[in-house]
Design a protein around this nucleic acid. Sequence first.
DNA 1: GCCAACGTTGGC
DNA 2: GCCAACGTTGGC
Length: 167
Amino acid sequence: MTKKSAKIRYWLMKTEPDVFSIDDLQRLGKTAWEGVRNYTARNSMRDDMKIGDLVIFYHSSVDPAGAVGLARVCSAPYPDATQFDEKSEYHDPKSTREAPRWILVDVEFVEKWPAMVTLHAIKAEKALKTMLLVQKGQRLSVQAVEPRHFERVLAMAGSRQAEAVTA
DNA sequence: GCCAACGTTGGC
DNA sequence: GCCAACGTTGGC
C-alpha cells in the first residue's frame, strides 16, 4: 500500500547574504533559521511549514536583490535558541524557556541556481505580477508562494527541480 | 542615505 | 482598546 504523500507547500525566505547566504547554506548543508522577529513570519514557520516544503532562497538588501536557489524545510518547529542568549543580537528578554516567543524550523540546501533571478526580472514577469514578494509595502521575510508562481520562478532560474514541481 | 510602508510599544 | 511615536525593512 502506497502511503499518500501530503501536498507540499512553497515558501520564500529572505536573508541578507552578508549575514547568511546560499553559499553558507550549501557549505553547512542545513541551518536553523534564526533571528526571525516578526509574528507573521514566525506563525508561518510554527503553524504552516512542514518537512519537505520547498523554499525559494532570496537575497535581500544587496545589489541586485533576488532569488538565488532552493532550500527545503527539514525539521519540525522548535524554539529559536538565540532568543535566550543574552549575547546574541536576537536576544529577547521578554521570552522565557517555559513560554518561548520565537519558533523556527531547520532548512536544508537543495540547489544554487546558475544565475540569480533578480527582483527586477520578477517584477518584469507578467505571470508574477500577483506574487506576494512584489506587492507594494510587502516585506515579510518568510512568505508563502503560490504553486504557479513557484513554478515560474524555477523555470526562469533553469532549475533542475522545475519539472518535478506539478501544479 | 532616503524614505514609504508597515509592525510594535506603551501611555492613557 | 486606541493610536501616536518609534523602530525596522528593504528597494532605490
